[in-house]
């Protein structure tokens, strides 16, 4: 789950000052689950802002999924609700805000702060569990991520700052991740994994901005384009057609397929 918390109302109001018509957009996925951008929160926010601003509201099922966000935005426009909007107030994570901004090309004001990928113990109790490092080692560390849960992200811990299984950061309150790993690997009878020297982390995988092109043959550098959505779509269609042509030609010449 992507963990978000609401920004202070004063900060939101200050950022909204230069706009008069706003649409509050919620998120039906993570922000709904952690109760920061679901329907009740969107409604609540609308109540607080009404009077100073003209407010419309909507909850998009998954604003970070461009396919869904685009469909919903079209629907809103079809209903004639999008015309007068000056800005979106987005109650969703940063990925959602940016996806929305790319689609609608309107100012998108974040209403939430995005913190981390974490577990929800219950509302208000969230703990980071994944750093999205791009190279998962959990199989070797008894399902406890040292990259995330060791304050130093060490691959070969514990460090000298561990006392009674607690971490030096934050005054020996939080568990030392490597202590937990040791405990659990011991329970599993897999001390061989604990004794292993793990290679340096591959920070190249984390060099941002990151992207994955699911179909390598369709790798067309879309992220680097500065085109609008329609043009981008046309570009994709063109690129796919070109690729198909290439493959067809290659086949017809009985040559191996170019990757």
């Amino acid at each position: 789950m992507i963990i978000t918390t609401q920004k202070p109302l004063e900060e939101i109001m200050r950022t909204l000052q230069s706009y008069s018509n706003i649409m509050i957009v919620g998120c039906g996925t993570c922000a709904t689950a952690v109760q920061t951008g679901g329907e009740p929160q969107v409604r609540e926010m609308a109540d607080k802002l009404r009077g100073k601003w003209f407010v419309d509201t909507v909850v998009v099922e998954a604003p970070c999924d461009e396919r869904i966000a685009r469909k919903d935005w079209r629907e809103i426009q079809r209903q004639g609700r999008g015309k007068n909007i000056d800005a979106f107030l987005c109650l969703m994570c940063g990925a959602g805000v940016q996806t929305l901004a790319e689609i609608a090309e309107l100012p998108c004001i974040p209403g939430l702060n995005t913190h981390f990928l974490g577990k929800v113990e219950r509302i208000g109790l969230y703990y980071e569990r994944c750093r999205a490092c791009g190279n998962c080692h959990l199989g070797e560390t008894a399902g406890i991520c040292p990259v995330t849960r060791c304050a130093k992200g060490l691959m070969n811990g514990p460090c000298g700052g561990m006392i009674d299984g607690k971490c030096e950061v934050g005054g020996y309150v939080r568990d030392c991740a490597w202590f937990l790993i040791w405990q659990r690997l011991k329970k599993f009878g897999r001390m061989d994994l604990f004794r292993k020297v793990r290679p340096p982390r591959e920070f190249g995988l984390e060099a941002y901005p990151r992207g994955i092109d699911a179909i390598p043959s369709h790798r067309i550098g879309r992220e680097t384009t500065v085109m609008g959505p329609e043009e981008t779509e046309k570009y994709i269609v063109k690129a796919i057609k070109e690729k198909a042509k290439q493959v067809k030609n290659a086949k017809s010449q009985d040559a191996p397929v170019v990757k």
Partner: peptide, 24 residues
């Protein structure tokens, strides 16, 4: 040495590096 965490020092907002650890 791995080194104490940067949060414990006199510039706690520094970016902690920890690219390698003492073993590596």
């Amino acid at each position: 040495l791995t080194g104490d965490h940067t949060l414990l020092g006199d510039m706690p907002n520094a970016k902690p590096v920890f690219d390698l650890d003492a073993t590596l």
